[in-house]
Write a protein that binds this DNA or RNA. Sequence first.
DNA 1: GTAAATTTAATTGTGCACAATTAAAATTTA
DNA 2: TAAATTTTAATTGTGCACAATTAAATTTAC
Lengths: 148, 148
Amino acid sequence: MSAEHLKLENQICFSIYATAREITKLYKPLLEKLNVTYPQYLVLLILWEEDSITVKEMGRRLYLDSGTLTPMLKRMETAGFITRERSKHDERSVIVSLTDKGKASEEDANSIPHQLLDQLDMEESELKQFKASLVKTLDRVYQINEVK
Amino acid sequence: MSAEHLKLENQICFSIYATAREITKLYKPLLEKLNVTYPQYLVLLILWEEDSITVKEMGRRLYLDSGTLTPMLKRMETAGFITRERSKHDERSVIVSLTDKGKASEEDANSIPHQLLDQLDMEESELKQFKASLVKTLDRVYQINEVK
DNA sequence: GTAAATTTAATTGTGCACAATTAAAATTTA
DNA sequence: TAAATTTTAATTGTGCACAATTAAATTTAC
């Protein structure tokens, strides 16, 4: 038996890692109608907030790099949700935009956040504190990772 | 601009998803000496707690299935951390055990949890509440996912 | 105004992560 | 106990996820 600090059940990072994966599974039935994966759903959320942004900006908002986004966006383009085109002003940039299908899909997504929160079944106050700790941790860890 | 409930910054699940990935990156330099990935480090944590368990039990503790574990454990076997052998009692089961190298590696891991927590830099009370919310959410979501 | 440095995506290669299927072994049931 | 069911890993196929490299375009420095 290893020392107490090496025990898995004591490690908050493992809780985050496991919870993230279980929540992705929880989304699966809710995303069936849209016919997208959870990361693809996040791309749509971004574009419904602000259409026609660069891959760079998409990556900044999702904390993902082009090695992840490029193939994922190509799949979403093939599936008819988005278009990808080089910027006229800066040929290095690729602009991602919603197609009519991508825009129309927002309708099918409207009920998802509420359905998800219902299943989490958490008090408003705890949820708020929980999210605050997450965002604080994310900001802090992102900063540390960036500096290196 | 989409409705408020569809905005990414309002979604707690995205915070969990992004935080999990950033924390995995934070572990990377700490795992360099051990020369393992974060999921592989979790396998070692389990085995340091209790050596010689089945793939099934490993999957139960890590919330991972054989499709993930089998190839990962094979890589760890090739790297010399573990052995894999069929159980004598039940030929369906595969027992995972530490090699001498795997056992000796615990020494190099001892300081990791403390180093990580230092970087998170969170008050003891907030950390405790944060972890409680995570475990509660994990239990709840796991239960929902299992029932289906 | 050109050379050097920076920015931006894409590509390549490795390692998870998981659903679905397969196959073998063990257990339960008729 | 023989047949049906269940359990356990492995396999297959798809989709992230990210480090490192490449290539093209832009910006900065001289």
